[in-house]
Design a protein around this nucleic acid. Structure first.
Length: 229
DNA sequence: ATAAAACGAGACCTTACGTCA
DNA sequence: CCTGACGTAAGGTCTCGTTTT
């Protein structure tokens, strides 16, 4: 599973979620049209009989038992979409995360729902997708944080070892300034320039060998001498 | 041409209902 | 049967882009 593109500089995430095309996160339909009056509609209807049956009788729900309680606020009834309705909505969502008014209307007719219901379903579906994406993003960043912490720990240890190796014995040489060992934050290359160029300052051959090995290791880590970042 | 009002749509937050353990 | 957790449909509000005045 591909998480971040290598050159990503923002939190744009590309995660393959089953049934969800993340390469087109939330495309705007770009369509402006009427239809705002749908907001006031009460689309609740009384569930009578089976799930399937209750969906068959749309368009007459304004007189449903929900509204028969003498002027008081009608108790909200939970509508459950049928499996088939959910399947069609899901398939449509995979193709496009937003619907223009025509598509919404057509889908509503096909599913025997009201356009407002289709609209709400898509709103909630987008929200769920986003939440799932954010959860995955959170998990990824948590792992990344752990990895970087561990890497940081190792590099600090490495720097300490290098300092110990490159600092001369007390009587033979001045201690090396700490600024001579640096690490480029962008390419993670350790740069040791000043004193090391003059060769190992240790007096014993064993220490010299160790130092040479370290230098060899470092040179492997930094194939080019200069970082232009 | 520009600013302000109006409008529409999506995002976001919240509530309420149905289901299940 | 009761209860709490969870999923989800839907209501309300906010924000932003576009159109109209």
């Amino acid at each position: 599973m591909e998480i971040f593109p290598n050159n990503s500089t923002c939190l744009e995430l590309t995660i393959a979620v089953p049934g969800f095309n993340s390469s087109q996160p939330f495309p705007s339909s770009g369509e402006i049209s009427g239809g705002g009056a749908m907001k006031a509609l009460d689309i609740n209807q009384a569930p009578s009989g089976t799930e399937e049956e209750c969906m068959e009788e749309e368009e007459e729900d304004d007189e449903s038992p929900n509204n028969n309680n003498n002027g008081g606020p009608a108790p909200r009834k939970k509508l459950r979409l049928t499996k088939e309705q959910s399947r069609v909505l899901e398939e449509t969502f995979i193709q496009n995360h937003t619907l223009n008014p025509k598509e919404k209307e057509a889908l509503a007719v096909e599913l025997k729902l009201k356009p407002r219901q289709v609209e709400v379903w898509f709103q909630n579906r987008r929200a769920r997708s986003k939440m799932k994406l954010m959860e995955m993003e959170y998990e990824y960043l948590k792992k990344l944080s752990g990895t970087l912490t561990e890497q940081n720990r190792r590099l600090k240890k490495e720097v300490e070892e290098l300092r110990a190796l490159t600092v001369a014995p007390p009587h033979s040489r001045q201690p090396m300034p700490s600024s001579t060992i640096t690490m480029c934050p962008c390419c993670e290359r350790v740069t040791t320039t000043t004193a090391l160029d003059k060769g190992p300052a240790t007096s014993t051959s064993a220490a010299a060998a160790t130092s040479a090995a370290k230098m060899s290791f470092l040179q492997q880590r930094q194939p080019s001498a200069t970082c232009y970042n």
